[in-house]
């Protein structure tokens, strides 16, 4: 963990997304043992097992398929606007036949509007934002994932932006893709991601007075134990589990 997430600048208290180690896979956590048993004696013999959990790391050219063309066009278009592509695009991942651009959050709106407006890119349909919470990814806990689809060219591309828990701000894409209005409200409702520039960022699914952001990993599932004849079965998140 520590070697992939160099400490943030002192005094900032992690309020800026931590710089990304561009070489290897992206480590998001460590898994210990085999059967998820905690707090009791380990009889499985797997208690000493330690595995790092890592998402696929950055890819290198050629990316294959239409990905090189999209990357070239995007980089070229960003350069034309006077923006250094390496500043905006933190890394590019090609995994399982999908292209992902990790974008620095301050450049998200510029990148998205370029992807939408450039005739050679023309990603006119945004299928919303999906929040993901990686508590183990220190300094970059909250990820907002956008999937863009080009009807013109028949392509899809994924944008990923991250923000630290201490400063969960991401620029809103409503000005570029108005369809993201409700999607961003949903991501705010469930993850506490604050989309700066959203016209009315309020809760959408949960009641207005709800406390907390229920789909974050640190928010419990909230189930209750179920009573049967002579036995009580704990809620799914309280049971012993594998992995």
């Amino acid at each position: 963990m520590s070697d992939t997430t160099p400490g943030t600048t002192p005094g900032d208290d992690g309020a800026v997304p931590a710089p990304r180690e561009s070489a290897g896979p992206e480590v998001i956590g460590v898994r210990k043992g085999m059967f998820g048993a905690r707090g009791g004696g380990d009889t499985s013999g797997y208690g000493g097992l330690v595995r790092t959990v890592a998402l696929p790391g950055p890819s290198h050219r050629p990316y294959g398929s239409y990905f090189d063309e999209v990357a070239d066009e995007l980089e070229g278009a960003l350069e034309e606007q006077g923006l250094l592509p390496s500043n905006a695009i933190e890394k590019t991942v090609v995994d399982r036949g999908e292209l992902t651009f990790h974008i620095a959050r301050e450049h998200l709106v510029r990148v998205a509007s370029t992807l939408r407006d450039d005739p050679a890119l023309r990603f006119e349909l945004c299928t919303g934002v999906s929040g993901v919470h990686y508590p183990g990814d220190r300094g970059r806990e909250l990820h907002a994932v956008y999937h863009l689809r080009s009807i013109t060219h028949g392509r899809t591309v994924r944008l990923e932006v991250c923000a630290p828990d201490a400063d969960p701000h991401v620029p809103s894409l409503v000005s570029v893709y108005p369809t993201n209005d409700w999607h961003e409200r949903e991501a705010y409702d469930f993850f506490g991601l604050v989309f700066d520039g959203h016209p009315a960022l309020t809760r959408i699914m949960m009641p207005d007075d709800w406390q907390g952001f229920p789909q974050r990993k640190d928010y419990p599932l909230g189930g209750i134990p179920v009573e049967y004849k002579g036995a009580q079965i704990p809620a799914p998140d309280q049971r012993r589990s594998y992995s």
Binding site: P56, V132, R158
Partner: peptide, 11 residues
């Protein structure tokens, strides 16, 4: 236990 799925994301 179920099967393990390699880390990553897909759409």
């Amino acid at each position: 236990e179920g099967f393990r799925v390699p880390a990553g994301q897909a759409y």
